[in-house]
Amino acid sequence: YLADITTQSDIKNISGLSIKERYKDKKNGCYSLAVLDKGVASKSYSLLLNKNSLEIESLLDLAEQKSGSLDECRNLIQAYKITRENDYYASLLAVLKPAAHHSFSYGSSGEISARIKKAFGKITVSVLVNGDSDGRISAAAGEAINGFGFRTQDGAAAKNAAYSFTADVSFEDIEKSESSDIYFTRCIVSWSLKEVSSGNTVLTSSGNSRQGKLSRAEARQSAVRAAETFVKENFSSQITQLLEK
């Protein structure tokens, strides 16, 4: 239970640890003698385990009340993060006090992880993109949505979808300057994700980009690719931030 604590160590989060003495060696190395009180540490980690367990149970209850929604996924993710903390504290306690065995009513972090995957699979999102002549933007949106494990439906024939993803896309060919060999096309994209039952907007975003190429056709294709990238990356980023709140 003795350790050399370097200046990079964060000892504030180590329960039961105290510094007994400090000294320098002949090469000017600085050392601290740390002593760990097993009784204090064991009690502290036991209290943390119990506190976290109550919080996890509360989050699981909230998730169950919001079944089939993004709120269910968000609460389960928060619960999972805390179960990982409990895994850590339980492993420390097993070393400090082997007789102290903890079993949790919520099961394990692995079981919570499985519940998250199942919750994501319950969510259906209808996809409708206006101004998408060849379906490429719709496909990009579907790829981003499916990437989280959500299911998608064609927005024009959607049934019982929990959320609707609606986007508007337009392309504008900019008049070419006589002094330049470059053709420019601008893409303008806006999208929103709404909860169907309430009509509330969950997320919304918009953006535009000007693409220049040596031919009009290339500039147009580049603008379409920019719109695809915006939809995929922007949606994925915003959903991730929403779920981690």
Rank of each mutant, 00 (worst) to 15 (best):
F165W: 09
T124D: 12
E72V: 09
I11D: 15
K122T: 13
Y23R: 03
S198Y: 13
I116R: 01
S206V: 00
K81S: 11
E178Y: 09
L70Q: 04
N234L: 03
T201F: 05
N13W: 06
A223S: 13
E172R: 10
I11L: 13
D25S: 07
E228P: 04
A63F: 02
R151F: 07
L36F: 08
I137L: 04
Y89H: 12
V169N: 03
L49A: 02
A100D: 15
S91D: 15
E143R: 12
S197R: 10
A34M: 10
K118M: 11
E64T: 12
Y45N: 00
I11N: 10
F171Y: 15
L76R: 00
A156P: 01
G212W: 07
S222M: 14
L36E: 03
V224M: 05
K24C: 10
S215L: 12
G131E: 02
Y31V: 02
T201N: 08
E21V: 06
R115M: 07
L48P: 01
L47E: 14
V196R: 02
I82R: 11
A144K: 05
V169Y: 10
A217R: 14
I112Q: 01
I19H: 08
L2S: 08
V35M: 06
L17D: 01
S53M: 08
L62C: 08
A167Q: 02
Q241N: 12
S133Q: 05
S190M: 09
S179M: 11
K118R: 13
G149S: 10
N234R: 13
A90W: 11
I112C: 01
N86S: 10
G39E: 15
S44E: 14
A161C: 06
S103H: 11
T240D: 14
E172A: 07
G135E: 15
L49E: 04
E175L: 09
D87R: 03
S69Q: 07
L17H: 04
S180W: 14
L54Q: 11
E143W: 02
S58H: 08
Y1W: 07
K81C: 06
K66Q: 15
E21Y: 04
R225P: 00
F120K: 13
K176T: 04
T229M: 03
S180M: 09
A3Y: 06
